[in-house]
């Protein structure tokens, strides 16, 4: 059969189908993530948020808003002190609802795709995100992150077979206040 006449299902390699089944099993199960890259590059997600790390994140993004840097200025604001930029959440945890052991199976410690196991895998990225912010993150906060995978589906893209995995992440601070909620979709590309 010519490739163009095959259904998406027929084009999928056995290990792709296996991945899909694995993701599906995890729908609705809450887990405490490591940052997906933590096993390669510890991001300190289980440590209190350090001000220097907030400043570094902002600097790397060319975001020099005095709210993240200047204590006197921040004290006069509605926040009453230094806060982190809202999407500092991405520095702690990229929101992708994939347990770290999963990332570890796909990527080697050098962040290179494990081609022996997944020869058709071409990469992954964040497809979309939606955030709601309730409380700011402040230096010294300890943020508890919980995730769960909520949806998994396949789609034929222009160049790749696309496996979409979406999930919910909630971030709570040491006072039990809900800091933020994220709905993040990731896409895994196969060819």
């Amino acid at each position: 059969m010519a490739e163009k006449d095959m259904t998406l299902e027929e084009k999928m390699a056995p290990e792709e189908r296996e991945l899909y089944e694995e993701f599906k099993k995890r729908i609705g199960l809450e887990f405490v993530p490591q940052h997906p890259h933590d096993m390669f590059f510890p991001n300190g997600t289980d440590e209190p948020v350090h001000w220097s790390r907030i400043k570094r994140w902002a600097t790397v993004n060319g975001d020099f808003n005095a709210l993240w840097f200047d204590e006197e200025y921040a004290k006069q604001s509605r926040w009453g002190g230094i806060i982190a930029p809202p999407l500092y959440l991405l520095a702690m945890d990229d929101g992708v609802s994939v347990p770290a052991d999963f990332t570890g199976a796909i990527y080697s410690p050098d962040c290179v795709v494990n081609r022996e196991k997944y020869p058709t895998f071409r990469g992954s990225m964040q497809a979309n995100c939606e955030w709601e912010f309730f409380e700011p993150i402040r230096p010294g906060d300890k943020i508890d992150t919980r995730k769960q995978c909520s949806d998994v589906f396949w789609k034929q893209g222009k160049r790749f077979r696309l496996l979409f995995v979406s999930g919910e992440t909630t971030y709570t601070n040491q006072n039990g206040q809900l800091v933020a909620r994220g709905h993040i979709g990731a896409v895994y590309m196969f060819k």
């Binding site: 975001d63 509605r78 926040w79 809202p86 991405l90 995100c129």
Partner: peptide, 25 residues
């Protein structure tokens, strides 16, 4: 994504708050 959120925080000033944000690459 982070750059796009900065569009808001640069604009709303010290007494504004970003409540929701969504984006797609």
């Amino acid at each position: 994504t982070s750059y796009l959120s900065q569009l808001f925080t640069d604009w709303i000033g010290p007494n504004g708050a970003l409540k929701k944000f969504a984006s797609q690459v």
